[in-house]
């Protein structure tokens, strides 16, 4: 066992301050363990949101030494022994108290996205798809909604464009629906005009902080932006559709998924 110094932000929406705590730490301990020890031994009123302590619920998101992390998956031994460990709440969302932020804005964005609507079943009354076609969208199902990607996205974090851009987590959700072989809803016009795909400038921070190692940028955001290009920025594709009399929205609704 050894002593480590933690600099934890304490306060609420009215204001606050960093408070330093010296904590006894042992091998294998994570940041959340240290916060629990502070609660148990020094400040029982320290507010921390957590649940599974296994990196699967996404509750204990916070910023450790300036980086968005899950506190239950961040080992104290990852930091140099003499280093003071700074723990802060997420920057992008309003503070409730101490390390707890109000992430409900994210749930509101989720409600805006038209949900999955499958095509009509085949003659035998069944819907079929092949594993190879859904492999890529299953990657997105690993998301635990910790919202670290939303926190680090500079469009939301620094430029505060929440009214313009839904953030990487929800572009990924749109991608998972748009790439689904059985879905019949056309979300591409909304993705451009309402969900703000053009606000992302692909600086990949969402991918860098994802604790589930989902390749958000390469596998969700860029493919979605390319689908937007197909529809709105590729003059050759647009002219071809016009000549052939194709309407991608109607085709999708009729179950003619490409």
């Amino acid at each position: 066992m050894s002593k480590r110094t933690f600099r934890v932000w304490r306060g609420d929406a009215e204001g606050g301050r960093f408070v330093e705590y010296n904590v006894e730490v042992g091998p294998g301990m994570v940041i959340l363990d240290a916060l629990h020890r502070i609660q148990a031994e020094q400040s029982p009123d320290l507010a921390v949101r957590w649940n599974c302590k296994a990196g699967k619920c996404g509750s204990c998101s916070m910023e450790v030494n300036g980086k968005p992390r899950l506190s239950c998956m961040t080992r104290i031994s990852d930091y140099e022994p003499e280093q003071i460990i700074t723990v802060q709440p997420l920057k992008t969302f309003p503070i409730i108290r101490d390390l707890v932020t109000d992430v409900s804005w994210n749930f509101e964005q989720n409600k805006r996205i038209p949900p999955f609507r499958p095509k009509a079943p085949g003659p035998d009354g069944k819907l079929r798809m092949w594993q190879e076609d859904v492999d890529r969208i299953q990657e997105f199902r690993k998301c635990i909604e910790c919202f670290l990607c939303q926190d680090v996205c500079h469009v939301l974090r620094d430029h505060e464009k929440k009214q313009n851009f839904v953030g990487p987590r929800f572009i990924m959700r749109i991608a998972s629906l748009e790439m689904h072989p059985l879905d019949t809803v056309d979300r591409i016009p909304q993705t451009l005009r309402e969900f703000g795909s053009g606000w992302c400038n692909i600086t990949r921070c969402c991918t860098e902080v994802c604790p589930e190692h989902i390749n958000i940028t390469d596998n969700a955001i860029i493919p979605t932006k390319e689908r937007v290009v197909d529809r709105f920025y590729d003059p050759v594709a647009m002219l071809t559709r016009k000549i052939r009399g194709e309407d991608p929205a109607r085709a999708r609704e009729e179950g003619k998924v490409p």
Partner: peptide
């Protein structure tokens, strides 16, 4: 860099 505040142009418009 990630979680480092960039140039605050006030008129950031991404790729729009």
């Amino acid at each position: 860099a990630c979680a480092v505040e960039g140039v605050r142009r006030g008129k950031y418009r991404g790729e729009t």
